[in-house]
Design a protein around this nucleic acid. Structure first.
Lengths: 172, 172
DNA sequence: TCTGTAACTTGCATGATGCAAGTCAATCGA
DNA sequence: TCGATTGACTTGCATCATGCAAGTTACAGA
């Protein structure tokens, strides 16, 4: 009855979620990406209970997204700083922000990503840096990669079957 | 002792997470985005217990990401189809996939996004469609929007203070 | 009638989340 | 010098979420 761990799945999305998929984790990363580093800063910014915050920070340190760094001996005090892996999570948070603004901000946006050279609000879209095309384009397709395990191949078979079914439906 | 709801926060990321932040939700969306629509397809693809799946699907329907559609009366059977809001979540999942591949795929990628006109693997990056620049560029900054509440403004003050501290540290 | 399929419920265990309160070491202000 | 404050946590529970196993309903086909 333990929460089933996604880390064992051979899917990059599942593996990623295993590190950041718990309640609070992504909001903590949001704050860290905006420059917060201290325990009590997170605590006040989020309104999270200190025991939860301690657990989540330990989890993020554990997952290699955040580093605990002493900024003072005597008394011992710590900064929580993003690692390269944590900083690289930025695009996911930005994509989430854009999606949230599009769908859950009826009174207008309460957060924006701004180009400070122009002062204009950004409109984030995912693009393939190889071809330059938007990833919303239907020419893009998610496919099994070389390292896919047998469990994942079974999943692909399910997906293929569903696709066949959809085609049959649209023909009728 | 209820899990604190993020929906009340005036932050698009928090509001979004309130809909998709639970265990399994994003993986269900991943599958739906790949074309799965049936209860037992999700069940088999994910290896999730049916009660959990039922709860998560109900939550997603509730959040407006998925629609329940009867594909057969007598016997009553349902398809779970993505709404516009759910389909729009695609970029978040793709960003997560890219991040996962970069950091949690030591044996190589087990999933890829492929341009089927060229057969080449895509390298997704977030771009501002207004200026065309990569959102990883430090000229972009997250800022309070017009609809930010007083709670959010307090958060901004915390962030500003942290920023001042970081600057003081880097000067020394 | 018996088996199978699709889409679920129900009944518990156990783990995760959360509030309140306490701890500990050091520094500050009077 | 002594109480107040700061920063970073821990401890003790209560309750909610998650998960496994098993049962249910409604029909179709053999």
């Amino acid at each position: 009855m333990k929460r089933t761990p996604f880390a064992a799945m051979s899917c990059p999305i599942a593996r990623g979620l295993d590190r950041v998929g718990e309640w609070w984790s992504i909001l903590i990363l949001r704050d860290a990406l905006q420059g917060l580093t201290r325990f009590d800063e997170f605590e006040r910014s989020l309104g999270i209970a200190p025991n939860m915050l301690a657990r989540r920070l330990a989890g993020l340190v554990d997952g290699g997204l955040v580093e605990k760094r002493a900024y003072s001996e005597r008394p011992r005090r710590y900064d929580y700083v993003l690692t390269e892996r944590g900083r690289d999570f930025r695009e996911v948070v930005q994509a989430l922000l854009a999606w949230g603004n599009r769908h859950f901000a009826p009174e207008g946006p309460s957060m924006l990503i701004v180009d400070r050279t122009t002062g204009l609000a950004a409109e984030p879209i995912l693009v393939d840096s190889v071809s330059g095309k938007s990833l919303a384009d239907p020419i893009f397709e998610t496919r099994p990669g070389p390292a896919l395990g047998s469990r994942g191949l079974a999943r692909q078979a399910l997906i293929a079957a569903a696709r066949v079914r959809h085609e049959a439906e649209s023909r009728s």
